[in-house]
Amino acid sequence: MKNGLKRAARTLAVSVPLVAGVLLTGVLATRPASAAERAWIVVDAASGAVIEAHRPQMQHYPASLTKMMTLYMVFDALAAGELQLDEKMYVSPHAQEMPPTELGLHAGDRITVETAIKALVTKSANDAAVVIAEHLAGTEWDFAMDMTATARRLGLDDTKFRNASGLPHPYQVTTAEDMAQLARALIDDFPGYYKYFSIERMRYQGRVYRNHNNLLGRYDGVDGIKTGYIDASGYNLVASAKRNGRRVIAVALGGRSPAARDRRVAHLLDAGFKQLPARMPPVPHAKPERGGYAVQVGAFSSKPAAERIAKRALEEARQALAGGIRRVAHLRGDDLYRARVVGLTVGAAERACTRLKRRGMDCLVVQDTPTQVAETGNSAG
């Protein structure tokens, strides 16, 4: 039965579903680009500035680029302490039925979160993607809705998700511009977990799976991130490379072959490094006047979780918190990390806290007095 389902899924083309026996047409207001209608973009990772682009906002099927968002959700849960790398996840019959590419998981198996991460990065395993989705959200559909909501929060306005793997679905669409933004978010929000995208191979149950990103180890500076392919999308690739302190992100959608796609991305990366300064400019050390108040947004059991919430506060109340400093403090004697944005006037702190509460975040305006803590801070531009 399983093999029959997989053979059927292999032949699946992107088509309009039958509803009550009636063929629906025109399901997309804007028809996604076919494989022949290529799109690409290259951006400065630090600023997001576009260096070169072609049809960057044209909708396209993401294929397994979808797994970038699946992994963003995993990293977010890890950073919040809601998930552990060695945590074991159950393989459901639905996960077992996923067509290639896959690890060949069987219903009733259990795999660790870290194994699933590596399987998505290297093998682009569809069954592992479903295991993650069901573990975090109960069903793959609910997880896809969470993915789309997260996409909106990150500013990916032209992206919609309907599954965790990237298998064909007529409503699952993205753009080159959105994929570049998602890559920036993965790098900026989870630098400690982004390293997984540089894994060139993984071993699972005696087999070795090589990363599909052919530029790893072949293009100077490339350290991730993801490939994708279905018939309707052609060959997609998002790649990031870093040289001399500068990082460039390139996206190519709809390549005719893996080789053509790789050449396009290499060209885009070349263009990016050619047009950016050879080295990072020096960071200015201006010391603006700052107030003595802070917005406190909670205390957490892990430093990454505290940093994530402090960063979210800056995003949600950017205008009121402009010029503030994100500060995470390890409270001595307690296994807690306190998250604050400091250096604010009382008026700015109150305005920010009001906005954060409207956005569903807990916060408290406090005087930023010295305490016995071990602190790390980052400027919030």
Rank of each mutant, 00 (worst) to 15 (best):
A151V: 00
D158P: 11
G360L: 10
A13Y: 15
V238I: 08
S47H: 00
K67L: 06
A35G: 11
P62N: 02
S198M: 10
G224V: 08
T150W: 05
L344I: 04
V14C: 11
V74I: 10
D189Y: 03
E350M: 12
R358I: 06
S47K: 08
D178L: 01
A95R: 01
P277R: 02
L253Y: 07
G360K: 12
G333D: 10
G234K: 11
L268C: 03
V130H: 04
V113K: 02
M280S: 15
E200L: 06
I325R: 07
D334A: 13
I51Q: 00
P281R: 04
V50D: 06
H54K: 09
L336V: 09
E289C: 11
D368W: 03
P93A: 14
E177S: 13
L321W: 04
T354E: 14
E87M: 03
D127N: 02
G360R: 12
V42D: 10
L182Q: 01
V283T: 13
A349E: 08
V341K: 05
A339N: 05
F75V: 12
L156M: 02
V91W: 09
I325N: 10
V16R: 15
G206L: 02
S15Y: 15
V91Q: 04
Y72A: 12
A241G: 07
Q205L: 13
E37P: 01
N163I: 06
T139G: 06
H106Y: 15
H267V: 10
H169F: 04
P277S: 02
L314P: 11
R263P: 08
F75R: 10
A185N: 08
R7H: 07
E114L: 00
